[in-house]
Amino acid sequence: MSESGPSVYEWAGGAEAFERLTKVFYAKVVADELLAPLFRRMKPEHPHDVAVMLGEVFGGPADYTERFGGYRRLVGRHKNRDIQPEQRARWVELMLSSADEVGFPDEAEFRSAFVAYLEFGSRRAMANSKPGAKPGNRDSLKLWGWGEARPGAE
Rank of each mutant, 00 (worst) to 15 (best):
E101H: 06
A108Q: 11
F110E: 02
G70M: 09
T65L: 09
E107M: 05
S97Q: 08
G103R: 03
F58C: 07
V52L: 05
R73L: 13
E101Q: 02
Y71G: 03
E66Q: 14
E107L: 02
R88M: 13
L74M: 14
P85R: 07
F68T: 08
P85M: 07
R40G: 07
R67W: 12
F58Y: 15
E93A: 15
Q87W: 10
V57M: 08
E45D: 15
E93K: 02
R77E: 15
F39K: 06
Q84G: 00
Q84H: 09
R88F: 03
G59W: 05
G103S: 02
N80G: 08
D106N: 08
D49W: 13
K43H: 14
G59I: 07
P85W: 07
E107I: 12
P44W: 09
K43L: 14
Q87N: 09
P47V: 12
P47C: 09
A89Y: 04
E86C: 06
G55V: 11
V92Q: 11
V75D: 10
G103I: 05
L94Q: 04
M53V: 12
R73T: 10
D49L: 15
D82P: 08
V92T: 13
E107K: 10
A108M: 06
A108T: 14
E93R: 06
V92P: 01
P61R: 12
F104A: 04
E93P: 03
R41Y: 13
E93H: 10
D82N: 15
N80P: 02
Y71I: 03
K79E: 11
A108D: 13
A62D: 15
P85T: 06
K79R: 15
V92W: 09
F39M: 11
D63C: 01
R73S: 03
P44D: 14
R41M: 14
A108N: 04
E56W: 05
V50H: 00
Q84M: 08
P44S: 15
P61N: 05
G70K: 00
V102H: 00
G70Q: 01
D100C: 01
I83E: 09
A51T: 07
R77L: 15
K79Y: 03
V102P: 02
